[in-house]
């Protein structure tokens, strides 16, 4: 079920929707980390939404950046699309907010390693969110939060996932991803 009534979506959902509607025209993307937990019902705030996108070449990125500006977004690091692209190319993240504001903001990064590409390859629309976005899998999010991020907030997100998806999780996949995280990231 995709939420059709606008009033059922939060302001955060609408913000993400406006951004990904443009982004998806330029490449595959996935939403990862905190907003995945929030979209799946976790009752906590966030100021940023993490998105990984497949690398986009400079000219095409410039078009994407300009389309985002036309739609009322602005990049918090630079107004120059070439400079923004150079950060992304160096595998740094850049942030976009609505013009004149910085809360909420999208933290955008290019896919960098095997795990990022694996997440893009296994992207999912999670029907439990009622939202028409691509997310990384719940198993992937649990593995990252329990094995890599590990802050109090991340462990609470993982706990939330484990309760909401009790009986539906692929524990072998979670363990396999944790192994890959130790190999690639640690």
């Amino acid at each position: 079920m995709v939420l059709e009534m606008e009033h059922d979506k939060s302001k955060l959902d609408c913000f993400v929707e406006d951004f990904v509607k443009i982004l998806e025209k330029y490449g595959d993307y996935i939403i990862v980390s905190g907003y995945v937990a929030i979209a799946l019902g976790r009752s906590r705030g966030t100021e940023d939404i993490d998105i990984i996108v497949q690398p986009i070449e400079k000219i095409k990125y410039s078009e994407l950046h300009n389309e985002l500006i036309q739609a009322g977004f602005e990049c918090l690091q630079s107004h120059d699309p070439n400079e923004v692209h150079s950060y992304l190319k160096d595998y740094l993240s850049v942030r976009y907010g609505r013009k004149g504001t910085f809360i909420p903001n999208i933290e955008l990064k290019f896919a960098k390693d095997e795990l990022d590409y694996y997440q893009l390859k296994t992207k999912k629309k999670l029907k439990e969110t009622g939202l028409d976005f691509y997310f990384s899998s719940v198993e992937m999010n649990i593995a990252f939060k329990e094995e890599y991020l590990k802050s109090g907030k991340d462990m609470e997100d993982a706990k939330h996932f484990r309760i909401v998806f009790a009986g539906k999780l692929n524990e072998d996949e979670i363990e396999q991803i944790k192994k890959e995280i130790r190999r690639v990231k640690l």
Binding site: H7, K11, I38, G41, S43, P104
Partner: peptide, 9 residues
């Protein structure tokens, strides 16, 4: 949930 998230934001 939407009421909470909007309020927080």
């Amino acid at each position: 949930h939407t009421l909470f998230i909007n309020d927080q934001l």
